[in-house]
């Protein structure tokens, strides 16, 4: 009985983890710009990895290795936002302007996918005025 419950709990956790990882992948493809994509990329690390590691801990049972999975999760939770922030910050410093609600409504709907790659690679000269604007 307990074994069956554990088995199904593991299955549910893995499936939920997979679901959030899948959503995150869909989001990276659909969302318009680098900032929006950074949001959804953190979903993989938080719930995607979190649920999968919870499943691993449950599958391993009460032993040393399951303590490691908790530690692993702890470090993922520290490093993931740091990395996401580093990406967003360097994007801001390179002068990439985010697609905002105002700019998106100008051309009807938020442009999903197509306009995004140009947006991220364009405006190489915009970086020069970033430093000036930051101190203001």
């Amino acid at each position: 009985m307990i074994e069956a419950a554990r088995f199904w709990a593991i299955v549910v956790l893995v499936v939920a983890g997979l679901f959030f990882t899948f959503v995150s992948a869909v989001g990276v493809i659909r969302l318009p710009d680098i900032y929006a994509r950074a949001h959804t990329a953190s979903q993989t690390d938080t719930l995607g990895a979190g649920l999968a590691l919870a499943a691993v801990a449950l599958a391993l049972g009460w032993q040393q290795a399951s303590v490691y999975t908790v530690l692993l999760l702890f470090f993922v939770f520290i490093t993931n936002p740091t990395a996401a922030h580093a990406i967003a910050r360097s994007a801001a410093e390179t002068g990439i302007e985010p697609v905002t609600a105002d700019s998106a409504t100008d051309d009807g709907s938020p442009d999903s996918g197509t306009g995004a790659p140009d947006r991220n690679s364009s405006e190489p000269d915009a970086g020069s005025d970033v430093d000036g604007g930051e101190t203001a």
Binding site: S42, A84, A88, R89, A91, E134
Partner: peptide, 17 residues
């Protein structure tokens, strides 16, 4: 705080001055 904001999907700390 900044890390918690970033960890929560939907909000992302871009700069922290």
């Amino acid at each position: 705080l900044a890390n918690s904001i970033t960890l929560t999907p939907g909000t992302l700390t871009v700069r922290a001055n």
